[in-house]
């Protein structure tokens, strides 16, 4: 299962991910149509302009998710395809326990319901719209292997050997 990875060094703080996220959750309307219709659609990830780096806050889709454990009506479910923790709106009673339980602050309330990242069904809009590659959608296992390879390369280079 892939996760969102954020590289603070690459982030320019352009907020494109936020707008893309909101635009991806417009019930089929295009961004332009939604703006003209005066529709509200909050983003499900947030760029915080920290110094010297911006920080993106969003759901980690924790493997042992405190929000799911806290959700009494079991409105928070795991999408078997993507591994995302998603809200089943019809079951959500607006108790806000998930908001309190989330250690990252990645869940918000909108019109009485919990709203959070759903990984866009496996192709996150925020990643597609990130112009610098600061946001990536990666498998942690592959990411680990990639780093191992990079480490080996560095060691070999230091020893004067070709990898």
């Amino acid at each position: 299962m892939k996760v969102l990875a954020f590289d603070a060094v690459r982030c320019m703080g352009c907020h494109s991910c936020e707008l893309a996220c909101a635009a991806a959750h417009l019930d089929g309307l295009s961004l332009m149509e939604a703006v003209l219709a005066g529709k509200r659609a909050p983003a499900r990830l947030w760029v915080h302009p920290g110094r010297p780096f911006a920080v993106v806050i969003t759901c980690r889709h924790c493997l042992r998710a405190p929000c799911m454990e806290a959700c009494a009506p079991q409105a928070l479910k795991r999408d078997p395809q993507t591994g995302a923790v998603v809200v089943e709106e019809s079951l959500c009673i607006g108790c806000r326990d998930c908001v309190l339980a989330c250690p990252f602050g990645a869940i918000r309330m909108e019109a009485g319901k919990a709203v959070k990242c759903d990984l866009c069904g496996g192709d996150p809009a925020c990643v597609r719209h990130c112009p610098t590659g600061a946001l990536r959608f990666v498998s942690p296992e592959e990411e680990g292997l990639r780093k191992q390879r990079r480490t080996i390369k560095t060691f070999l280079a230091k020893a004067g050997r070709k990898p």
Partner: peptide, 22 residues
């Protein structure tokens, strides 16, 4: 695309959030 960014001075660049709480 929406015309919601401005670079006319260096208090900016500014942009306006058309959909959310920005």
């Amino acid at each position: 695309t929406l015309g919601l960014c401005c670079r006319h001075c260096v208090m900016g660049p500014c942009r306006i959030d058309p959909l959310g709480d920005g």
